[in-house]
Design a protein around this nucleic acid. Structure first.
Lengths: 215, 215
DNA sequence: CATGTTAGATACGGACACGTATCTAATTCT
DNA sequence: AGAATTAGATACGTGTCCGTATCTAACATG
């Protein structure tokens, strides 16, 4: 609980300088993500966010009507915008790069935890589910291996008939499951293994290397 | 909130017949799962479980010290025990059957929702994570495609070198991701597609059928 | 029937969060 | 400097939940 008494930048004292506008919103966004990562969405409170952001509840209620509103807006604003930049002659490398992008962006400790918490809550909340997918995922794009696969299909390197919703999902599904089962992010070797053992075979590019496996 | 005022079997009135022992525990277990599925683990309360089970809080506190304890025990008790029964000459059929078993057991609306909620909470709670895996998953076994794949490898139908942690995870990972992205369970066609488009290629059994796709 | 065991009902003090209202203080702009 | 805007502080009544304590009622057993 001690952490709850601290503001986003570690100050435990009352500030005389007041943050305004965008600066304040940024601090509140960050506090909302931190609070969610730490306590889950079910225990997310306006008081907790306010306390952590070092601001008054009134500042929150002036802009948002619920904690979830803050979180969705924060997820949107902080969505990693870097996208795969596939070339034309290194399918394997580009797939690996895409999954690393996913790991290093979406699956980071805070962002990933919040995303997981919201997805879980979204099971019970069609409204939240819809907002997450339309306002965050679809609005921000962010498809990883899918982008690479489509690109290489356009360049005639993959049979387009192999590109199905299942195949698009393989890499990301395996990354997510690893994150759930383990208590850490997939390492480079695991990402290599996903590409070599699952994605490449699925698109008809049998691999020549021995399986790397989980280390 | 009206539902919270009802007991597990729909009775809204005070009962004169008292449930004792195992019967009472079963009702409490069921109430705990229902409450979790409905409100999430973060908002799960002893009062809510008691109210839903139509019993007194004292009956809960006599046995358990926290709501999570009840849920873990309930997950253990209600874990679907049916396991894949692979034959020897229908790898595809057995893989499909295994995934259907997963869908119809673990992914059912209540059980699946609770499992998801606990997994999400387990991100923040190493103790809970450990208990879930050791007390529920490991204690109950329940590996789906893995069981089938190992079986067929023992019968010489699959090259054992192809069986890696990644390959074991493919089917279940895709099932889980579908469940998260969509608001429904994977249908038979999707399960067929997982087996044909992802699992079989991964173990070197290229399929002859056209991709089924998501319908 | 008497006794022992278990279930249920309820009170209690304390903690926490909600959402609103009100007022003061700080900052920006003219 | 004064006015307008925004941020911060705090009070408030209400509701929910916690965990404990206490007591009565129901049930099982000898």
């Amino acid at each position: 609980m001690t952490d709850r008494n601290r503001t986003a930048d570690g100050e435990a004292q009352r500030r005389t300088r007041r943050r305004r506008g965008a600066e304040l919103v940024a601090a509140i966004h960050e506090a909302a993500l931190d609070e969610t990562a730490e306590h889950g969405l079910g225990r997310l409170t306006m008081e907790g966010i306010a306390r952590r952001a070092g601001t008054a509840k009134t500042s929150l209620y002036r802009r948002w009507s619920s904690p979830e509103d803050i979180v969705i807006e924060a997820l949107y604003r902080m969505y990693p915008m870097e996208e795969p930049s596939p070339g034309a002659d290194d399918l394997r490398g580009d797939l690996i790069a895409a999954l690393k992008l996913m790991r290093d962006g979406l699956m980071q400790p805070i962002y990933g935890a919040v995303m997981g918490a919201v997805l879980e809550e979204a099971r019970r909340r069609p409204d939240l589910h819809k907002r997450l997918y339309s306002d965050v995922f679809d609005a921000r794009g962010g498809r990883f291996t899918r982008t690479v696969l489509l690109h290489y299909a356009e360049h005639g390197r993959i049979d387009p008939a192999r590109l199905t919703p299942v195949v698009f999902d393989i890499g990301e599904a395996l990354m997510l499951k690893y994150g759930v089962d383990m208590f850490e992010l997939p390492d480079d070797a695991y990402i290599d293994a996903i590409v070599d053992q699952a994605i490449l075979p699925a698109i008809g590019h049998g691999h020549e290397n021995p399986p790397s496996g989980r280390t």
